[in-house]
Amino acid sequence: MSDASGRSRGAIDVLLVEDNPGDVRLVEEAFHDATADSELHAVSDGEEALDFLYQRGDHASAPRPDLIILDWNLPRTSGEQVLTELKDDPERKHIPVTVLTGSQDDTDVLDSYRKHANACLRKAVEPEAFMDAIQAYAEFWFSTARLPNGDE
């Protein structure tokens, strides 16, 4: 597979940080239906997300994700804390992060952008609407947008 830059690459590695197993399942189904070659890696809290990103512990051999979907409200370490740490790291700050929130509070959306999120998606209440939103998201990132090369 080649991306918009013409470079050859394998599957797009996506890190999903989500503590709700039902939402994880819906994202998995939506990505399965997407046309791009992608590998979805799911973790359930902020601490595990940081371990994945820094290849620590059980995630020592984890790939560097090309894209991150980050739930804002997580146990242990919040999505806000994960985003702050990631965007403060010169080696990882280029990884696009989409904040996923079920909150109807516009303050959460504004805070995610202030912390340098690349996008913010609200979780739809209806599973079908949620899957439609994730499929549109996947189509954009996999087919339209140019993801950064890990060396850029």
Rank of each mutant, 00 (worst) to 15 (best):
R7N: 14
I12H: 06
L16W: 05
F31T: 02
D33C: 10
T35V: 10
E39A: 06
E39P: 00
A42Y: 03
V43D: 09
S44N: 06
D45N: 15
A49K: 10
F52P: 09
Y54L: 11
R56V: 04
A60L: 11
S61L: 13
S61I: 08
R64I: 13
P65H: 12
P65S: 15
D71H: 08
W72D: 06
W72L: 13
W72K: 00
L74E: 03
T77K: 14
G79W: 05
Q81H: 12
T84K: 04
E85N: 07
K87N: 03
D88F: 03
D89F: 00
P90T: 00
R92H: 15
H94T: 14
I95H: 01
P96M: 10
V99Q: 04
T101C: 03
S103K: 12
D105L: 14
D106T: 05
V109H: 09
L110V: 14
L110E: 13
D111L: 12
H116D: 15
H116K: 14
H116F: 15
A117E: 13
A119F: 12
L121A: 03
V125Y: 00
F130T: 07
M131C: 07
E139D: 15
F140C: 00
S143R: 08
T144P: 07
L147D: 10
G150M: 00
E152N: 11
